[in-house]
Amino acid sequence: MAVEAPAKPTLADKIYDKMFHNYVWKSIFRTGYPNTPRNQMLVVATNVFLHLHPTRIHRTHVKVTHTYCLGGLSFFMFLGLTVTGILLMFYYVPSVERAYLDMQNITTTVQFGQLMRNMHRWMAHAMVILVFLHMMRVFYTGAYKPPREFNWVVGVILLVLTFLLSFTGYLLPWDQLAFWAITVGSNIAGSAPVLGPKTRFWMLGGFEVGPESLIRFYTLHVIGLPLLAAIFMAVHFWRIRRDGGLARPL
């Protein structure tokens, strides 16, 4: 049998080879291009971000109508809110003297400031809705049943954290909407039997919404609650893997 001589590499092949098969590239991405099943599995298994997934999953779970991507999108909103939030933090100072002026600055003079603020706001609303819908989808597919009991509980905690994240962010613009919404909200908390007034005082750092409340809400909003949420999300995702992926019929 005549063996065909390998075609001479073209210029494109050479450039491709230089770019993707060199020492530095290989040190970052250990697997080859994911065009074979082996590489496709390796790419998921060797990448820390993709490794949230298993390398293979049951075929019913890639149907969009099974999850509607709601959990994933909740997480995506969380990531988007982190990015836009960090950008806003460059311009925002959580003091009563500056907060409102900074908001005005962000929306008028800062390049893309208004856009960042809008994105942050609408993503926050979207996240609350998505998390709630995700809970509904989990409930209606009976996915809280054994062995996923505890992950449902983690989910309920995440739901509360999502509300709290949104609530603490609401005060930061320091406008009338913010001020009175938090006044109403903290009055609700203050009405709790026995511990209410103390809770309210602790929440606001005083008897009224004021400078102390602003710095408390800010700290919780930008670091305390996101950290907690990230921890619970890590547990949530880990448990999904440990519980054998998503629920499917027996």
Partner: peptide
């Protein structure tokens, strides 16, 4: 089972 890359990752990307 199907492969996560590309079957799932693609859908996640589109969403």
């Amino acid at each position: 089972e199907v492969l996560v890359w590309p079957d799932l990752v693609f859908i996640e990307f589109i969403a």
